[in-house]
Design a protein around this nucleic acid. Structure first.
Length: 208
DNA sequence: AGCACGATTAACT
DNA sequence: GTTAATCGTGCTC
């Protein structure tokens, strides 16, 4: 049974590690201007926590690019990197403290054909299995940086999904921090749904 | 004004 | 396993 309760700001206004864990199995929804609805269950996320975290963009202080991370929780922090890719983060904790959860992978559930077109005909398993792929499939870019995910009129938001039990979650070091100093490089702030659990997630998501 | 680099991806050996 | 693609950003001169 697919329910459509939007996650409230209180969900995001918590310690970032909790949000990164709890966001697994929740539904990311993108409403298209034409009226279409794209959605997927979050199956991988990472926590980036404060200016002390040398893996976090906030390490160098507040800049025009990372300003959204200092803003209120429940907003999007969308940034551009590698000259071609956009990344979606969910801002967490209290306003004034820079922290966010990077959404790294989704199980696509609604609007798959639209996603496939945006992803240039790639197979379904490659539609949203990376942070930049998600932004491509869901048409997320700079326009959505700072966007309030909890506003009722928002075209990008989270809905309460089935969630995942503890035994279905694995943790490990965050990806792509190759030149970052320890302990930040190896600290296990990456949260993933175990691949073998994903079929049952997909099953729970089906509408009777 | 110039420059090194990046929370990645796709293609290739 | 390796590497090119591609450019906004933030730092230095």
């Amino acid at each position: 049974m697919v329910t459509r309760r939007r996650l409230p700001r209180a969900f995001f206004e918590r310690p970032t590690l909790q949000v990164a864990r709890q966001v697994l199995g929740q539904r990311l929804v993108r409403l298209e201007p034409e009226g279409g609805r794209l959605a997927g269950l979050i199956v991988e996320a990472e926590a980036y926590v404060g200016s002390e975290d040398l893996g976090c963009h906030a390490r160098a202080g507040r800049t025009a690019r990372n300003a959204s991370m200092w803003g209120p929780p429940g907003h999007a922090y969308v940034y551009f990197t590698y000259g071609m890719h956009w990344m979606l983060n969910l801002v967490t904790e209290r306003e004034g403290f820079p922290a966010a959860v990077l959404v790294r992978a989704l199980l696509p559930t609604e609007g798959v054909e639209v996603m496939r077109r945006r992803r240039r005909g790639r197979p379904e398993r490659e539609l949203t299995d990376g942070p930049a792929k998600i932004c491509q499939a869901l048409a997320i870019d700079r326009e959505l940086d700072g966007h309030d995910l909890c506003n009722p009129d928002s075209r990008l938001f989270l809905e309460a999904g089935p969630g995942v039990p503890e035994q279905a979650v694995t943790t490990g070091p965050r990806v792509g921090l190759n030149s970052v100093a320890e302990p930040w490089k190896s600290i296990p702030w990456r949260f993933q749904v175990r691949p073998e659990y994903i079929p049952s997630l997909a099953e729970e998501e089906q509408t009777p």
